[in-house]
Simulated assay, not measured.
Amino acid sequence: MSNTVFCKKYQKEMEALDRAPLPGARGQDILSTISKQAWQEWQVLQTMMINEKQLNLMKPDARKYIMEQMDKFFNNEPVDKVAGYVSPDDIKEL
């Protein structure tokens, strides 16, 4: 039986991550409050943001921006849109 966690993004009990995805307290917080599904969805969005906005994660401003967007994503707040991205839901409506 897999580990579960009450996911703050989906507000229900879901499969937990296997290990903390980040070091330190922030990683432990994510491990205890974010589901594996929510983390995987964030990884896809994060990759799109980094690529489309050409973020250099060696720069503190870029890392700060990504962490802010991550917090918004997990708290179900609006995140910055990726230029040119069309969600599958939008395609279904066409």
Rank of each mutant, 00 (worst) to 15 (best):
Met1Gly: 15
Asn3Thr: 09
Asn3Phe: 04
Thr4His: 07
Thr4Ala: 00
Val5Ala: 00
Phe6Lys: 10
Phe6Arg: 11
Cys7Trp: 08
Cys7Phe: 02
Cys7Thr: 05
Lys8Thr: 08
Lys9Thr: 13
Lys12Ser: 14
Glu13Cys: 04
Glu13Leu: 09
Met14Val: 03
Met14Ala: 11
Ala20Gln: 11
Leu22Met: 08
Leu22Arg: 11
Pro23Ile: 05
Pro23Met: 01
Gly24Tyr: 03
Gly24Val: 01
Ala25His: 05
Arg26Cys: 01
Gly27Pro: 05
Gln28Gly: 03
Gln28Ser: 04
Asp29Tyr: 13
Asp29Ala: 10
Leu31Pro: 01
Leu31Lys: 05
Ile34Thr: 12
Ala38Leu: 02
Ala38Asp: 02
Ala38Val: 02
Trp39Val: 00
Glu41Gln: 09
Gln43Asp: 12
Gln43Asn: 09
Val44Met: 06
Val44Arg: 07
Leu45Lys: 11
Gln46Gly: 10
Gln46Phe: 00
Thr47Asn: 08
Met48Thr: 06
Met48Gly: 02
Met49Arg: 08
Met49Gly: 01
Glu52Gln: 10
Lys53Trp: 14
Gln54Phe: 04
Gln54Cys: 07
Leu57Asn: 06
Leu57Thr: 09
Leu57Glu: 04
Leu57Phe: 04
Lys59Arg: 13
Pro60Cys: 00
Asp61Arg: 09
Asp61Trp: 07
Asp61Gln: 14
Arg63Asn: 08
Glu68Trp: 01
Gln69Arg: 12
Met70Thr: 00
Asp71Tyr: 05
Lys72Asp: 14
Lys72Phe: 14
Lys72Trp: 06
Phe73Gly: 07
Asn75Lys: 13
Glu77Ile: 07
Glu77Lys: 13
Glu77Met: 09
Pro78Ser: 13
Val79Gln: 01
Asp80Val: 11
Lys81Ile: 10
Lys81Cys: 08
Tyr85Ala: 13
Val86Cys: 04
Val86Asn: 05
Val86Asp: 06
Ser87Asp: 08
Ser87Trp: 04
Pro88Phe: 14
Pro88Val: 12
Asp89Thr: 12
Asp90Gln: 15
Ile91Val: 15
Ile91Cys: 09
Lys92His: 07
Lys92Ser: 14
Glu93Thr: 15
Leu94Met: 15
Leu94Asn: 11
